[in-house]
Design a protein around this nucleic acid. Structure first.
Lengths: 91, 91
DNA sequence: TTAACAATTAACTTAATTGTTAATTGAAGT
DNA sequence: ACTTCAATTAACAATTAAGTTAATTGTTAA
């Protein structure tokens, strides 16, 4: 958990694109897949990395599993960056 | 260049620690090394990754090479995050 | 229960990253 | 020129990550 997982998850262009897709609302895994040219299995693993970082949440509806963005954890990155840019007085 | 390099560079705890060390001002490679328990060669490569991402700048002074933080590129991440959290209307 | 479909997990391959030690570059002093 | 010290680069071993295909899990409907 934490910053490490979040940054690791964001350090991949496909995963960032997935997050952008989810900006407008939840999508099923299949819907997400259809936007990329890799296999469903590959996307599924990307989704699990994002989920591990708590950047997305999932819930099943019948046959489908829907994913939705959880942008709140990005706050931690904002804080880290702000701190790095900000007060030059504590190490 | 760009967001990809920046996020990749940040996705390593040692590299983030290096940036934090540089918050208070420039340090030589040796100074930086002394804070970690890996070899100088390993740190040198971390530094080159950070430099490639333009997160740090270097300049030589005699035998020493000093590194300093360039936090300005972090702005791009802030923007990306803000956009992701913000306007829910464009994909 | 069987068939069909959505999605994940498993097994495996390949490429990228991280670390080590050894060799190299660059600058300063003798 | 030679030595010494700071730092990087090269070459290699080990780990991690990302992709593929094939098998498995979970759900719905006949």
């Amino acid at each position: 958990m934490g910053l490490q997982n979040t940054l690791r998850a964001l350090a991949d262009p496909i995963r960032r694109d997935i997050l952008s897709l989810l900006k407008t609302g939840p999508l099923s895994a299949g819907d997400i897949c259809s936007h990329f040219s890799v296999t469903a299995a590959a996307i599924s693993r990307h989704l699990s990395v994002l989920k591990e970082a708590d950047l997305i949440r999932d819930h099943r509806e019948g046959k489908f599993i829907y994913y939705e963005l959880n942008a709140s954890v990005l706050e931690e990155i904002m804080l880290w960056i702000t701190e790095l840019k900000g007060d030059k007085d504590d190490a």
